[in-house]
Design a protein around this nucleic acid. Structure first.
Lengths: 225, 225
DNA sequence: ATGTGTGAAGATTTTCACAGCA
DNA sequence: TGCTGTGAAAATCTTCACACAT
């Protein structure tokens, strides 16, 4: 049996494919039928050559001298990312951030479906958010088992994030997205991805300050002797 | 005049420095006075050698054979990241996500201060979130000018994100953090950093699915019947 | 002995340049 | 001619191994 493509697509590429997919959807809705790599790259905010390299991981999918067919490329990327199959997600920690995610309609069209919202606080249990009712933590194992949810999202305070991670893993969740500002350890076979909002702000601020420093090199940090 | 250090710290390193800083704060609060690179790395979820390499960008700041002094290292990183100087941030788009950010206390201790919350919807204007009152978009220029805010955060729907970006840039904001799922163009001198929550989920899901595919190579792509 | 600081090797990602096909 | 697909070069980031200070 031949290996038609190397089964490994670089992670950086996968992230960009998701962006291209969004742009293609918008383009298709706008009635466009073809795009060039230059145009698509501009709309996605990346370098054209890089975009072509990314797409090359999916095999040839454009027409030389012409460009890409919007609908075809959209389908191809959808297939690779697995957008078609709906994936159940459970969300733990229904504070502001959790509520924001539960309410965000954009996930539905990307193959994600929230199948359970959980919180430890009794006064949050029973609330309805984004069409779902918040359930107590006790119900977690049962819901994960019943819905075969494969993804868990943690939006709890940092202090309890690890214990929530453990519970999710034990319940059978295989992939975890962690918004709590703390690194999590998970058993082998479960992978954790982290999003740290304050780190993003910090990096942004540093780059801005660095840029200023380069432009007006005054008071160069004054090393403490 | 000599160049004591190359003024450029890799972006990846900056992101991790922010994480180390958080760990060091926790460690200091716990009464610890010294740490080794191994221990700090474990707490931050990174490789020890990488951590040392990261810190090497700040110049020598440990004691060989002993480790790092928690308080000293904390100060050094704070200095470099510019945590000391308070930076004004304005936030545009007070939906769920905007509210979550405005309410998150963690930013204050990292040198960020929200100095203005804005929304275009009349019924959101006047609400109080995280100790601030939501203001109409008309007030934006004035507030940015008065507070010298240097950072803008966009948590609006995608459709209006570009126009908000333009307004922020015109008002004098130099750094923008964009949560809207659309790439933004900004004038030179303004840098934009993007956080795309649905992309994070998509990457996580893909990696999970890829892992499964590798583990149990059944039904290679099997069209949905 | 112990753990930092760092040059060098290795892996990954980005960019370039151009061959090849419509 | 115009734009895709791709090897090769460049830049970047990570990991290793060990000299060196305490």
């Amino acid at each position: 049996m031949i290996q038609p493509r190397p089964r490994t697509i670089p992670e950086a590429t996968v992230a960009r494919l998701a962006v291209y997919l969004r742009v293609l959807t918008a383009l298709g809705d706008g009635g466009r039928s073809t795009v060039s790599s230059g145009e698509l790259a501009a709309a996605a905010g990346v370098n054209p050559a890089g975009l072509r390299k990314d797409l090359s991981h999916l095999g040839p999918c454009g027409v030389r001298g012409v460009g890409y067919e919007v609908a075809t490329l959209h389908d191809r990327i959808s297939r690779v990312l697995g957008v078609e199959r709906s994936r159940g997600c459970v969300l733990v920690g229904m504070g502001n951030l959790g509520s924001a995610l539960a309410d965000y309609a954009g996930f539905g069209t990307r193959g994600f479906e929230f199948v359970g919202l959980f919180d430890a606080a009794p006064d949050r249990v029973g609330q309805s958010i984004g069409g779902h009712t918040v359930q107590p933590m006790d119900a977690l194992d049962e819901v994960v088992a019943a819905t075969q949810a494969s993804i868990g999202v943690i939006t709890t305070p940092a202090e309890v994030a690890q214990s929530v991670c453990d519970r999710l893993a034990r319940a059978g969740v295989r992939s975890i997205l962690n918004f709590a500002p703390v690194p999590l350890a998970a058993p082998p076979g479960v992978d954790v991805r982290k999003v740290d909002l304050s780190v993003e702000l910090q990096v942004l601020a540093f780059l801005g300050q660095q840029r200023l420093g380069a432009a007006a090199p005054l008071a160069p940090v004054e090393e403490p002797a």
